[in-house]
Design a protein around this nucleic acid. Structure first.
Lengths: 100, 100
DNA sequence: AATATATATGCGTTGACAGTTATATTTCCC
DNA sequence: GGGAAATATAACTGTCAACGCATATATATT
């Protein structure tokens, strides 16, 4: 599953947001999400396959960790578009300054 | 359809890439894509509903135009993640400099 | 008005995905 | 070893998206 596809699902974006605060065992993620345990587990699998998270075993727990480097793919794709709204912003700012 | 969902589909990303060069009639997009005309038309509809493109009529043609501002949503979502790989890059650069 | 061109929509099929419940697997503790 | 806890997988169901083909709609041309 590509990062783009992985991010299409809101629950998966939420999982990544949760992991931004630091690595967490799957159980905590389940508790934080409004989803069944298997549901969360499947989303985590999708994120794993997209390379967006990694897991490490700690006893019977699985500690999930954000792999943000993979999001750089998105950033790269986005790059040639960025100047479009950057230009607009520049124009807006110029306009606002002119009006001051 | 959210921008995230819209971007999950490779053909739709390709359509956006094509529109980066400037606005184009639907027919040109069909010619450039390896898809049926109705197929392209449906993807364009999805992009329209996601706010990522706009259309204007010119005779019997429909001229499509990139609405890149909507991609700023993506950029905003990405923002809190950016420092993750930026940090990694800094570390890598420092490492490379040290080795020079 | 009839025909052609450009584009969109309807329909049917197929495959993928998200959600559930139930069950398997692994590890821990007694 | 036996049971509990943590997590993953299996099996099933309902929904939705993508594709192709056929058709409708709108505009232009003669």
């Amino acid at each position: 599953m590509s990062p783009f596809e992985a991010l299409a699902e809101p629950n998966r974006r939420r999982l990544l947001d949760l992991l931004r605060a630091g690595e967490r065992p799957a159980g905590e993620l389940v508790a934080a999400m409004d989803l069944s345990q298997p549901g969360v587990s499947k989303h985590l699998k999708a994120l794993r396959e997209a390379g967006l998270v990694s897991v490490r075993a700690d006893g019977q727990q699985r500690i999930y960790r954000l792999e943000a480097r993979k999001l750089a793919d998105l950033d790269v794709w986005l790059k040639p578009y960025r100047h479009f709204w950057a230009d607009h912003l520049d124009a807006l700012e110029a306009h606002l300054e002119r009006d001051q």
